[in-house]
Design a protein around this nucleic acid. Structure first.
Length: 110
DNA sequence: CGTGTGACGCGAG
DNA sequence: CCTCGCGCCACAC
């Protein structure tokens, strides 16, 4: 237990965390990495998201700056923003207020 | 079986 | 506000 040989479990773990993000809320890569028991591996989350399987609310994952990481103007970025707005997430310019829409893994029911 | 790399994070200048 | 650089880990070639 203490040493969770997550090893190859890392990806599934990341996906599991992303799936837990409630609708209308967003989580940052670093936060997900931490919840996936891989603190500091934010890049891994990004890597995992790049390979995200279908059915995953990948659009609820943004960077710590509250911005969409995908290249601005790219199809993915536009799709992500559109989905978030469809869930009630408002954008301040090209940024999201994490204080307001940031997901609290501890108990914050929406 | 080694190297590079990437939807990141953050301190410093 | 910006840029620069290091750390980080699994996966692709």
């Amino acid at each position: 237990m203490s040493s969770t040989p997550s090893g190859s479990r890392t990806y599934p773990q990341i996906y599991a965390v992303v799936r837990r993000i409630p609708r209308g809320r967003v989580a940052t890569y670093g936060q997900i990495a931490r919840l996936a028991e891989r603190p500091g591996a934010a890049r891994l989350v990004g890597y995992a998201m790049h390979r995200c399987p279908p059915g995953l609310p990948w659009h609820r994952v943004i960077n710590a700056g509250g911005r969409i990481s995908l290249p601005a103007g790219s199809t993915g970025a536009l799709a992500q923003r559109r989905r978030l707005e469809a869930e009630g997430v408002r954008f301040a310019g090209d940024r999201v207020d994490l204080k307001r829409y940031g997901w609290s893994p501890n108990g914050a029911p929406e």
